[in-house]
Write a protein that binds this DNA or RNA. Structure first.
Length: 354
DNA sequence: TAGGCCATCTGGTCCT
DNA sequence: AGGACCAGATGGCCTA
Protein backbone atom coordinates (compact mmCIF):
# COMPACT_ATOMS: atom_id res chain seq x y z
CA UNK A 1 0.00 0.00 0.00
CA UNK A 2 1.47 3.31 -1.00
CA UNK A 3 1.84 6.29 1.21
CA UNK A 4 -0.45 8.18 -1.06
CA UNK A 5 -3.04 5.51 -0.93
CA UNK A 6 -3.13 5.18 2.80
CA UNK A 7 -3.18 8.90 3.16
CA UNK A 8 -5.98 9.18 0.69
CA UNK A 9 -8.03 6.61 2.51
CA UNK A 10 -7.32 8.42 5.72
CA UNK A 11 -8.45 11.70 4.19
CA UNK A 12 -11.46 10.06 2.70
CA UNK A 13 -12.45 8.70 6.04
CA UNK A 14 -11.78 12.03 7.62
CA UNK A 15 -14.02 13.78 5.16
CA UNK A 16 -16.62 11.16 5.79
CA UNK A 17 -16.42 11.63 9.50
CA UNK A 18 -16.72 15.36 9.08
CA UNK A 19 -19.98 14.76 7.36
CA UNK A 20 -19.50 17.66 4.97
CA UNK A 21 -22.73 16.85 3.24
CA UNK A 22 -24.53 17.98 6.32
CA UNK A 23 -25.90 21.40 5.66
CA UNK A 24 -24.74 22.92 8.87
CA UNK A 25 -21.11 22.00 8.27
CA UNK A 26 -20.75 23.19 4.72
CA UNK A 27 -19.51 26.67 5.35
CA UNK A 28 -16.81 25.48 7.68
CA UNK A 29 -14.91 23.51 5.06
CA UNK A 30 -11.88 25.23 3.69
CA UNK A 31 -10.48 22.44 1.57
CA UNK A 32 -11.63 20.31 -1.28
CA UNK A 33 -13.91 21.29 -4.12
CA UNK A 34 -15.70 24.59 -4.14
CA UNK A 35 -18.80 24.60 -2.10
CA UNK A 36 -20.91 25.28 -5.12
CA UNK A 37 -19.61 22.03 -6.56
CA UNK A 38 -20.58 20.14 -3.51
CA UNK A 39 -24.06 21.52 -3.69
CA UNK A 40 -24.36 20.48 -7.28
CA UNK A 41 -24.45 16.91 -6.19
CA UNK A 42 -26.77 17.75 -3.42
CA UNK A 43 -29.17 19.43 -5.75
CA UNK A 44 -29.04 16.63 -8.28
CA UNK A 45 -29.61 14.05 -5.66
CA UNK A 46 -32.52 15.91 -4.34
CA UNK A 47 -33.96 16.54 -7.72
CA UNK A 48 -34.06 20.18 -6.82
CA UNK A 49 -34.85 21.75 -10.15
CA UNK A 50 -35.84 25.09 -8.80
CA UNK A 51 -32.72 25.99 -6.93
CA UNK A 52 -30.95 28.08 -9.52
CA UNK A 53 -31.81 31.50 -8.26
CA UNK A 54 -29.19 31.58 -5.58
CA UNK A 55 -26.09 29.77 -4.79
CA UNK A 56 -27.31 26.98 -2.64
CA UNK A 57 -24.69 27.65 -0.06
CA UNK A 58 -26.14 31.08 0.37
CA UNK A 59 -29.57 29.64 0.49
CA UNK A 60 -28.68 27.34 3.28
CA UNK A 61 -26.95 30.03 5.16
CA UNK A 62 -29.90 32.29 4.70
CA UNK A 63 -32.24 29.65 5.90
CA UNK A 64 -30.15 28.80 8.85
CA UNK A 65 -29.37 32.32 9.88
CA UNK A 66 -32.91 33.33 9.33
CA UNK A 67 -31.83 36.01 6.86
CA UNK A 68 -35.20 37.58 6.39
CA UNK A 69 -33.74 40.49 4.41
CA UNK A 70 -33.36 38.39 1.31
CA UNK A 71 -36.39 37.15 -0.60
CA UNK A 72 -37.34 33.64 0.21
CA UNK A 73 -36.41 31.16 -2.48
CA UNK A 74 -39.10 29.71 -4.57
CA UNK A 75 -39.57 26.18 -5.73
CA UNK A 76 -39.65 22.97 -3.84
CA UNK A 77 -37.85 23.00 -0.58
CA UNK A 78 -34.61 21.21 -0.59
CA UNK A 79 -34.73 17.79 0.89
CA UNK A 80 -33.05 17.48 4.20
CA UNK A 81 -29.88 15.46 4.12
CA UNK A 82 -30.76 12.73 6.48
CA UNK A 83 -28.06 10.71 8.12
CA UNK A 84 -29.00 7.72 6.01
CA UNK A 85 -28.65 9.73 2.81
CA UNK A 86 -25.32 11.09 3.88
CA UNK A 87 -24.06 7.63 4.65
CA UNK A 88 -25.33 6.34 1.32
CA UNK A 89 -23.58 9.09 -0.49
CA UNK A 90 -20.36 8.59 1.40
CA UNK A 91 -20.36 4.88 0.75
CA UNK A 92 -20.94 5.48 -2.93
CA UNK A 93 -18.18 8.05 -3.03
CA UNK A 94 -15.71 5.80 -1.25
CA UNK A 95 -16.49 2.99 -3.65
CA UNK A 96 -16.07 5.28 -6.62
CA UNK A 97 -12.77 6.54 -5.25
CA UNK A 98 -11.49 3.01 -4.85
CA UNK A 99 -12.49 2.19 -8.40
CA UNK A 100 -10.83 5.28 -9.70
CA UNK A 101 -7.67 4.49 -7.78
CA UNK A 102 -7.46 1.01 -9.16
CA UNK A 103 -8.23 2.28 -12.62
CA UNK A 104 -5.35 4.70 -12.40
CA UNK A 105 -3.11 1.97 -11.03
CA UNK A 106 -3.99 -0.13 -14.05
CA UNK A 107 -3.15 2.75 -16.29
CA UNK A 108 0.17 3.22 -14.54
CA UNK A 109 0.94 -0.48 -14.80
CA UNK A 110 0.35 -0.30 -18.51
CA UNK A 111 2.60 2.71 -18.69
CA UNK A 112 5.25 0.80 -16.78
CA UNK A 113 5.01 -2.07 -19.23
CA UNK A 114 5.48 0.44 -21.99
CA UNK A 115 8.57 1.80 -20.25
CA UNK A 116 10.04 -1.66 -20.15
CA UNK A 117 10.02 -2.02 -23.91
CA UNK A 118 11.42 1.42 -24.56
CA UNK A 119 14.96 1.75 -25.89
CA UNK A 120 16.16 2.84 -22.51
CA UNK A 121 14.69 1.60 -19.34
CA UNK A 122 15.75 2.22 -15.82
CA UNK A 123 13.96 1.48 -12.64
CA UNK A 124 15.59 4.30 -10.79
CA UNK A 125 15.52 6.82 -13.60
CA UNK A 126 11.94 6.39 -14.63
CA UNK A 127 10.74 8.35 -17.59
CA UNK A 128 7.80 10.55 -16.81
CA UNK A 129 4.45 9.62 -18.25
CA UNK A 130 4.53 12.20 -20.96
CA UNK A 131 8.12 11.41 -21.91
CA UNK A 132 7.30 7.72 -22.05
CA UNK A 133 4.50 8.37 -24.47
CA UNK A 134 6.64 10.68 -26.56
CA UNK A 135 9.48 8.20 -26.69
CA UNK A 136 7.06 5.41 -27.59
CA UNK A 137 5.71 7.48 -30.44
CA UNK A 138 9.22 8.22 -31.67
CA UNK A 139 10.27 4.63 -31.28
CA UNK A 140 7.39 3.35 -33.37
CA UNK A 141 8.09 6.01 -35.91
CA UNK A 142 11.80 5.17 -36.04
CA UNK A 143 11.20 1.45 -36.37
CA UNK A 144 8.66 2.07 -39.09
CA UNK A 145 11.24 4.08 -40.96
CA UNK A 146 13.71 1.23 -40.66
CA UNK A 147 11.14 -1.22 -41.94
CA UNK A 148 10.19 0.96 -44.84
CA UNK A 149 13.69 1.74 -45.92
CA UNK A 150 14.89 -1.80 -45.35
CA UNK A 151 18.27 -0.44 -44.45
CA UNK A 152 20.14 -0.66 -41.22
CA UNK A 153 19.64 2.60 -39.45
CA UNK A 154 22.20 5.30 -39.19
CA UNK A 155 22.95 5.54 -35.52
CA UNK A 156 22.82 9.25 -35.19
CA UNK A 157 19.74 9.54 -37.33
CA UNK A 158 17.98 6.87 -35.35
CA UNK A 159 18.86 8.61 -32.14
CA UNK A 160 17.62 11.91 -33.45
CA UNK A 161 14.35 10.29 -34.37
CA UNK A 162 14.03 8.80 -30.94
CA UNK A 163 14.76 12.08 -29.24
CA UNK A 164 12.45 14.23 -31.32
CA UNK A 165 10.44 16.40 -29.01
CA UNK A 166 11.87 14.87 -25.86
CA UNK A 167 13.19 16.95 -23.04
CA UNK A 168 16.91 17.45 -22.75
CA UNK A 169 17.28 15.07 -19.81
CA UNK A 170 15.38 12.34 -21.59
CA UNK A 171 17.37 12.93 -24.75
CA UNK A 172 20.54 12.57 -22.75
CA UNK A 173 19.26 9.39 -21.24
CA UNK A 174 18.41 7.91 -24.60
CA UNK A 175 21.70 9.03 -26.05
CA UNK A 176 23.52 7.49 -23.15
CA UNK A 177 21.74 4.22 -23.61
CA UNK A 178 22.38 4.22 -27.31
CA UNK A 179 26.05 4.91 -27.00
CA UNK A 180 26.94 2.90 -23.94
CA UNK A 181 24.64 0.00 -24.32
CA UNK A 182 26.89 -2.09 -26.43
CA UNK A 183 25.97 -5.68 -25.85
CA UNK A 184 28.26 -8.57 -26.63
CA UNK A 185 25.41 -10.33 -28.29
CA UNK A 186 25.48 -7.72 -30.99
CA UNK A 187 29.15 -8.12 -31.59
CA UNK A 188 29.07 -11.60 -32.87
CA UNK A 189 31.28 -11.88 -35.90
CA UNK A 190 28.34 -13.09 -37.89
CA UNK A 191 26.92 -9.61 -37.83
CA UNK A 192 29.12 -8.85 -40.79
CA UNK A 193 27.06 -11.18 -42.94
CA UNK A 194 23.77 -9.49 -42.36
CA UNK A 195 23.40 -5.90 -41.46
CA UNK A 196 21.77 -6.05 -38.09
CA UNK A 197 19.44 -3.51 -36.67
CA UNK A 198 21.71 -2.27 -34.00
CA UNK A 199 19.19 -0.31 -32.10
CA UNK A 200 20.99 0.83 -29.06
CA UNK A 201 23.95 -1.32 -29.63
CA UNK A 202 26.89 -1.36 -31.95
CA UNK A 203 26.08 0.41 -35.10
CA UNK A 204 28.42 -0.79 -37.78
CA UNK A 205 30.44 2.06 -39.08
CA UNK A 206 29.09 4.35 -36.48
CA UNK A 207 31.89 6.40 -34.97
CA UNK A 208 30.78 5.81 -31.42
CA UNK A 209 30.20 2.12 -31.70
CA UNK A 210 32.26 -0.32 -29.77
CA UNK A 211 33.93 -2.11 -32.55
CA UNK A 212 35.46 -5.32 -31.47
CA UNK A 213 33.82 -8.61 -30.65
CA UNK A 214 34.52 -9.77 -27.18
CA UNK A 215 35.01 -6.33 -25.75
CA UNK A 216 33.01 -6.10 -22.62
CA UNK A 217 30.32 -3.57 -22.46
CA UNK A 218 31.11 -0.33 -20.77
CA UNK A 219 30.50 -0.78 -17.13
CA UNK A 220 27.17 0.90 -16.86
CA UNK A 221 24.30 1.58 -19.09
CA UNK A 222 22.84 -1.15 -21.14
CA UNK A 223 20.67 -1.11 -24.14
CA UNK A 224 20.35 -4.07 -26.34
CA UNK A 225 18.25 -5.18 -29.22
CA UNK A 226 16.27 -7.50 -27.05
CA UNK A 227 13.37 -5.17 -27.14
CA UNK A 228 13.14 -5.99 -30.79
CA UNK A 229 12.82 -9.68 -30.18
CA UNK A 230 9.14 -9.45 -29.62
CA UNK A 231 8.89 -8.54 -33.26
CA UNK A 232 10.35 -11.84 -34.33
CA UNK A 233 7.10 -13.23 -35.52
CA UNK A 234 6.21 -10.11 -37.39
CA UNK A 235 7.70 -8.11 -40.16
CA UNK A 236 10.99 -7.74 -38.39
CA UNK A 237 11.66 -11.41 -38.81
CA UNK A 238 14.38 -11.13 -41.39
CA UNK A 239 16.23 -8.48 -39.54
CA UNK A 240 15.90 -9.71 -36.04
CA UNK A 241 16.08 -13.43 -36.46
CA UNK A 242 19.75 -13.31 -36.96
CA UNK A 243 21.95 -15.62 -34.95
CA UNK A 244 23.68 -12.59 -33.57
CA UNK A 245 20.54 -11.83 -31.66
CA UNK A 246 20.59 -15.01 -29.70
CA UNK A 247 20.66 -13.54 -26.27
CA UNK A 248 22.33 -16.47 -24.60
CA UNK A 249 25.12 -17.01 -27.05
CA UNK A 250 28.17 -18.01 -25.04
CA UNK A 251 30.57 -16.82 -27.69
CA UNK A 252 29.09 -13.39 -27.34
CA UNK A 253 30.49 -12.87 -23.92
CA UNK A 254 28.48 -15.52 -22.19
CA UNK A 255 25.54 -13.32 -21.44
CA UNK A 256 23.35 -15.49 -19.29
CA UNK A 257 19.62 -15.60 -19.29
CA UNK A 258 18.13 -12.66 -17.56
CA UNK A 259 18.39 -12.99 -13.84
CA UNK A 260 18.68 -9.53 -12.49
CA UNK A 261 17.37 -6.03 -12.53
CA UNK A 262 16.83 -4.30 -15.76
CA UNK A 263 18.85 -1.50 -17.22
CA UNK A 264 21.04 -0.05 -14.53
CA UNK A 265 20.42 3.42 -13.31
CA UNK A 266 21.48 6.26 -15.50
CA UNK A 267 21.57 9.80 -14.43
CA UNK A 268 19.83 12.27 -16.62
CA UNK A 269 22.89 14.40 -16.82
CA UNK A 270 24.78 11.67 -18.56
CA UNK A 271 26.87 10.87 -15.55
CA UNK A 272 26.23 7.26 -15.00
CA UNK A 273 25.79 6.09 -11.51
CA UNK A 274 26.64 2.87 -9.82
CA UNK A 275 24.01 0.26 -9.65
CA UNK A 276 22.16 0.56 -6.44
CA UNK A 277 20.48 -1.96 -4.27
CA UNK A 278 16.79 -2.03 -4.88
CA UNK A 279 14.80 0.00 -2.44
CA UNK A 280 12.54 -1.77 -0.01
CA UNK A 281 9.70 -0.47 -2.06
CA UNK A 282 11.13 -2.06 -5.16
CA UNK A 283 11.71 -5.32 -3.35
CA UNK A 284 8.13 -5.23 -2.23
CA UNK A 285 7.06 -4.90 -5.78
CA UNK A 286 9.25 -7.73 -6.91
CA UNK A 287 11.97 -5.50 -8.25
CA UNK A 288 14.73 -7.34 -6.49
CA UNK A 289 17.39 -9.47 -7.99
CA UNK A 290 15.05 -11.92 -9.58
CA UNK A 291 13.13 -11.37 -12.73
CA UNK A 292 10.10 -9.23 -12.21
CA UNK A 293 6.77 -10.93 -12.29
CA UNK A 294 5.71 -8.82 -15.20
CA UNK A 295 8.23 -10.47 -17.41
CA UNK A 296 6.42 -11.43 -20.51
CA UNK A 297 7.34 -13.96 -23.11
CA UNK A 298 9.02 -12.45 -26.08
CA UNK A 299 10.43 -9.54 -24.21
CA UNK A 300 13.95 -9.96 -22.99
CA UNK A 301 15.05 -7.23 -20.67
CA UNK A 302 18.36 -5.51 -20.72
CA UNK A 303 21.35 -7.13 -19.16
CA UNK A 304 23.58 -5.58 -16.62
CA UNK A 305 27.18 -6.31 -15.87
CA UNK A 306 26.26 -7.87 -12.57
CA UNK A 307 24.40 -10.52 -14.47
CA UNK A 308 27.61 -11.74 -16.05
CA UNK A 309 29.10 -14.60 -14.05
CA UNK A 310 32.21 -13.54 -12.22
CA UNK A 311 31.63 -9.91 -12.91
CA UNK A 312 28.90 -9.20 -10.45
CA UNK A 313 29.01 -6.43 -7.93
CA UNK A 314 30.99 -3.24 -7.81
CA UNK A 315 34.27 -5.06 -8.28
CA UNK A 316 33.09 -6.62 -11.48
CA UNK A 317 31.76 -3.32 -12.66
CA UNK A 318 35.04 -1.71 -11.88
CA UNK A 319 36.83 -4.45 -13.78
CA UNK A 320 34.67 -3.77 -16.79
CA UNK A 321 35.44 -0.09 -16.57
CA UNK A 322 39.15 -0.78 -16.35
CA UNK A 323 38.89 -3.05 -19.36
CA UNK A 324 37.15 -0.36 -21.31
CA UNK A 325 39.84 2.19 -20.41
CA UNK A 326 42.50 -0.25 -21.44
CA UNK A 327 40.78 -1.11 -24.68
CA UNK A 328 40.55 2.50 -25.72
CA UNK A 329 44.02 3.30 -24.50
CA UNK A 330 42.71 5.84 -22.08
CA UNK A 331 44.46 6.84 -18.86
CA UNK A 332 43.75 4.18 -16.32
CA UNK A 333 43.14 6.79 -13.65
CA UNK A 334 40.45 8.41 -15.71
CA UNK A 335 37.25 9.02 -13.79
CA UNK A 336 34.07 7.56 -15.03
CA UNK A 337 32.60 10.98 -15.62
CA UNK A 338 35.53 11.94 -17.76
CA UNK A 339 35.21 8.69 -19.60
CA UNK A 340 31.59 9.39 -20.40
CA UNK A 341 32.41 12.89 -21.46
CA UNK A 342 35.18 11.61 -23.65
CA UNK A 343 33.09 8.95 -25.29
CA UNK A 344 29.83 10.69 -25.81
CA UNK A 345 29.54 14.01 -24.11
CA UNK A 346 31.01 16.34 -26.66
CA UNK A 347 29.74 14.57 -29.74
CA UNK A 348 26.24 13.96 -28.46
CA UNK A 349 26.12 17.45 -27.11
CA UNK A 350 26.55 18.86 -30.56
CA UNK A 351 23.65 16.82 -31.78
CA UNK A 352 21.19 17.67 -29.08
CA UNK A 353 22.22 21.07 -27.84
CA UNK A 354 20.57 23.42 -30.23
C1' DT B 1 11.25 28.78 -3.83
C1' DA B 2 9.21 27.85 -8.23
C1' DG B 3 8.11 24.38 -11.30
C1' DG B 4 7.47 19.58 -12.70
C1' DC B 5 5.47 15.37 -11.72
C1' DC B 6 2.48 12.53 -9.40
C1' DA B 7 -1.53 10.35 -6.74
C1' DT B 8 -5.86 11.09 -5.27
C1' DC B 9 -10.45 13.02 -4.81
C1' DT B 10 -14.30 14.70 -7.05
C1' DG B 11 -18.25 15.69 -10.08
C1' DG B 12 -19.91 15.30 -14.75
C1' DT B 13 -21.03 12.50 -18.70
C1' DC B 14 -21.79 8.45 -21.21
C1' DC B 15 -22.83 3.68 -21.56
C1' DT B 16 -24.75 -0.84 -20.29
C1' DA C 1 -28.58 2.35 -11.10
C1' DG C 2 -24.03 1.64 -11.30
C1' DG C 3 -19.63 1.49 -13.55
C1' DA C 4 -16.12 3.49 -16.74
C1' DC C 5 -13.97 7.34 -18.25
C1' DC C 6 -12.56 12.02 -18.09
C1' DA C 7 -10.82 16.41 -16.57
C1' DG C 8 -10.20 19.84 -12.91
C1' DA C 9 -8.52 20.71 -8.30
C1' DT C 10 -5.45 19.89 -4.67
C1' DG C 11 -1.54 18.77 -2.00
C1' DG C 12 2.89 16.24 -1.49
C1' DC C 13 7.49 15.31 -3.04
C1' DC C 14 11.58 16.36 -5.47
C1' DT C 15 14.95 19.07 -7.88
C1' DA C 16 17.25 23.00 -10.01
Amino acid sequence: MTKHYSKAVEMSELVGSLGWMEEDTLSSQDEGPAESDRYTIDAREDGDAGSDELDEGEQDENEENGAEKLPKRRGPKKKKMTKARVERFQARRIKANARERSRMHGLNDALDNLRRVMPCYSKTQKLSKIETLRLARNYIWALSEVLESGESPDGRGFMEMLCKGLSQPTSNLVAGCMQLGQQPLLLDKREEKVAPVCVGGAIPGHPFSYPSPGLPSPPYGAMDASHLLHLKSHSFKGLVEHPAYEHTSPECGGTPPYDGPLTPPLSVSGNFTLKQEPSPHEIDKGYGSSAPATHTAGFVPHYVPSAIPGLGGPQGQNALFQTALSRYELPMDMTFDSYIQHMVGSQIGTVFNE
